[in-house]
Amino acid sequence: MTEPQPGPGSSSGPEQHPVPALAIRGLAKRFGGKIAVDGISLDVPAGSFYGIVGPNGAGKTTTLSMATGLLRPDFGTAFVHGVDVWSRPLEAKKLMGILTDGVRLFDRLTGEQLVTYAGLLRGMDKDVVSARVAELLAALDLSADAGTLVVDYSAGMTKKIALASALIHAPRLLVLDEPFESVDPVSAANIRDILVRYVGSGGTVIVSSHVMDLVQRMCDHVAVVAAGKLLAAGTVEEVRAGASLEDRFVQMVGGRSRTEGLEWLRTF
């Protein structure tokens, strides 16, 4: 096994965390003529709450899919706690819990069955699974709908049940793609609490989002991705450099249209 070299985005000293929770090395992907991800390298220190932000279509989901073994990269690879995702996939996937954006679930199962299924697929013990399923459903406020088919869930409930499926095996690294999309504020706060406690006990969380406020409040590290490239990475304080994360983000990504024009909009 080759020890991953610290990437340009590494910010915490190697003496603190010699092996990053996730080390992305030169990942690149092309879809037809469009380069979706153009060589991204990034270190996510163990025990960090890491936000990945970028405009729509920046390549966040593609990067995370390649880093978690769901999409084969054209170039590069990723290491989870030092385990190469693409040469030892089964081992690496044991360490990860993944919430993927934009894929279906086995939605003809009830919520309880789906989370149980996710646990059993990981080869977990039956009693452990059933105890954890009950706790997870209660924590995510889904107990009342546990016996309802997932296909009849609302968008936010579907997101929460997918999150429960990702948490069931107590992974060391959580990769969550847009975890708060269409989740109501109360549930979002509950999920945040769960994640903060999880990080506090040594776990690592990576969330992708385009809600800057949320990332600024919740995460301790952040990476900015646009047009398939890594624009900045480090602690939130470093990246925002005194300004608000949103302002820094808009400044880096650009694309703010001039405020002139649209005069007619004020004429009614």
Binding site: F106, L109, T110, E112, Q113, T116, Y117, L120, L121, R122, G123, D125, K126, V129, S130, V133, A134, L137, S143, A144, D145, A146, G147, T148, D152
Partner: peptide, 27 residues
């Protein structure tokens, strides 16, 4: 409209062996 149903009915998941193969068969 759909009714809400509480937990407790694991169906085939509770019957078949709690292994990946068993779970996939149940699913």
């Amino acid at each position: 409209a759909g009714g809400r149903k509480r937990a407790g009915r694991l169906g085939l998941f509770g019957v078949l062996p709690a292994t990946p193969t068993g779970a996939i068969t149940a699913r």
